[in-house]
C-alpha cells in the first residue's frame, strides 16, 4: 500500500482491520479497514444508524467487534484483553451525554482517574486539574458539582477530564449533539484549540463547519460501510458517491 508522503513517516496510532460488528441480526459495521496516524484529525460523518458511533467505540473497545482486529498504539486490543485498561489510559473519550461523575465536584472529576489509576500525587493532580480547567475557561467552577453547570460547561469539563489523563488520542462521540444550539460554539472552540496543538483526534459529528476547518481527512459512513474518504476540501466540494451527495445536500442547507 502506498502511503501519502505527507503522513508517511507518522506512526499509525489506530488501525482497524476487517472489523465487523453485529447487534443480534443487525450488521452494524461491515468489514471496516481504517488507519489513524499520529497527529491526524479524522472526522467521521454520516446519517444516524450508519455505524459511526459504533466505529469510534470500537477504538477503545467499549464496543467489542464481532470479528476483526483493532490495534491501538501498537497493542492489538482485540487479542490482549489484559492490556485494554492500560491502553484506555491513553485513549480519552468525550461522550454525547458528557457522563461526568455527578457525585464528584468538577475538580474531583478531573483528578479521580489520574490519582487512582496513574497514581499521580494529589497535589500534582489538583494543580494539573486546575490548569486544564483554566484551559477550557472554567477554573472558577472547580468546586461546584456538574449538575450546577450548563450543558456546554459540562461538556467543556468533560474535555478537561479527558485531557487530565494526558492522552495520545482523543475520541469525540457526537460531542455537541446533546447541546442547546447556543452552547455548541463554546465546545467547538475548545476542540479547535486542541486540534491546533497536534493531539490525535477522531471526531464523530454533524458539525460540518468543524469538519471543514479542522479535519485532515473526512470519512462518510452509511449502512455500516465507509462510503467515501477524502480531504475535507475535496469531500465537501466534490463528493463522488450519490449517497454522500444526498446526505450533504440534506445537511448543508
Amino acid at each position: 500500500m502506498v502511503k501519502n508522503t505527507r503522513n508517511g513517516r507518522r506512526a499509525r496510532l489506530i488501525q482497524l482491520e476487517g472489523v465487523n460488528k453485529h447487534f443480534g441480526h443487525l450488521h452494524v459495521l461491515k468489514d471496516i479497514n481504517l488507519t489513524v496516524k499520529s497527529g491526524e484529525k479524522l472526522v467521521v460523518i454520516g446519517p444516524s444508524g450508519s455505524g459511526k458511533s459504533t466505529l469510534i467505540r470500537c477504538m477503545n473497545l467499549l464496543e467489542k467487534p464481532s470479528s476483526g482486529k483493532v490495534t491501538v498504539d501498537g497493542v492489538d486490543i482485540t487479542a490482549h484483553k489484559a492490556l485494554v485498561a492500560k491502553v484506555r489510559q491513553s485513549v480519552a473519550m468525550v461522550f454525547q451525554q458528557f457522563n461526568l461523575y455527578p457525585h464528584k465536584t468538577v475538580l474531583e472529576n478531573l483528578t479521580l482517574a489520574p490519582m487512582l489509576i496513574k497514581k499521580v500525587p494529589q497535589a500534582e493532580a489538583v494543580k494539573a486539574g486546575l490548569a486544564y480547567l483554566d484551559r477550557v475557561g472554567l477554573k472558577e467552577k472547580a468546586n461546584v458539582y456538574p449538575s450546577q453547570l450548563s450543558g456546554g460547561q459540562q461538556q467543556r469539563v468533560a474535555i478537561a477530564r479527558a485531557l487530565a489523563m494526558r492522552p495520545k488520542i482523543m475520541l469525540f462521540d457526537e460531542p455537541t449533539s446533546a447541546l442547546d444550539p447556543e452552547m455548541i460554539q463554546e465546545v467547538l472552540d475548545v476542540m479547535v484549540d486542541l486540534a491546533h496543538e497536534g493531539i490525535t483526534m477522531v471526531v464523530v459529528t454533524h458539525e460540518m463547519g468543524f469538519a471543514k476547518t479542522v479535519a485532515d481527512r473526512v470519512i462518510f459512513m452509511d449502512d455500516g460501510l465507509i462510503v467515501e474518504e477524502n480531504s475535507p476540501q475535496r469531500f465537501f466540494e466534490n463528493p463522488t458517491h450519490e449517497r454522500t451527495k444526498s446526505f450533504l445536500s440534506r445537511i448543508l442547507r
Partner: peptide, 10 residues
Amino acid sequence: QMEAALSQGF
C-alpha cells in the same frame, strides 16, 4: 457512568 470510567482506564 460505567463507560466513562472504563474509558479512563478503570
